[in-house]
């Protein structure tokens, strides 16, 4: 029993969007001074970061994690919708099982990113008030 190509494509694309959202989520976790990224260790002067190491990010940097997370959530909601529509159109048993699996992954990621987004917003508001 095979999966319809459309369902296979939309499932694959939904998983790809999940990876995109995860990458955006990770970006949202990092300090927004990109020179402090571990990826650029080799590009920094020996023994120190290029930026002020003790600096707490303030506005507008405090908004950036939220921005990345919102775009990540948009990608996930898009994935969710694409899979739901695909499920309505292609729902033989094997297709249903495969798409339900993708749906589950997407759903879990949405819940996680939404929680993170709430926490980030709270932190940003606190930072603004201070």
């Amino acid at each position: 029993m095979t999966v319809h190509p459309e369902a296979a494509f939309l499932s694959g694309y939904a998983l790809f969007l999940t990876v995109v959202a995860a990458a955006l989520g990770r970006l949202g976790r990092r300090a927004t001074d990109p020179w402090s990224s571990p990826m650029l260790t080799a590009s920094r002067p020996p023994g120190g970061a290029a930026s002020d190491p003790g600096h707490e990010p303030g506005w507008p940097h405090s908004e950036v994690p939220a921005f990345h997370l919102v775009v990540g959530i948009v990608a996930l909601v898009a994935a969710l919708l694409l899979i739901l529509v695909s499920l309505v159109r292609h729902h033989r048993p094997v297709e249903s099982v495969a798409q339900a699996g993708v749906l589950l992954v997407v759903g879990i990621r949405i819940a996680r990113l939404t929680r993170r987004h709430r926490a980030v917003r709270r932190a940003a508001m606190l930072s603004d008030h201070n």
Binding site: F67, V74, A75, A78, A79, L82
Partner: peptide, 21 residues
């Protein structure tokens, strides 16, 4: 937020998958 979400939606839901296809 509406412009950014709308633009991201446009890319992720339609233009990018259509382009891949």
């Amino acid at each position: 937020w509406s412009l950014n979400i709308g633009l991201a939606w446009m890319c992720f839901v339609t233009l990018l998958p259509l382009g891949i296809v």
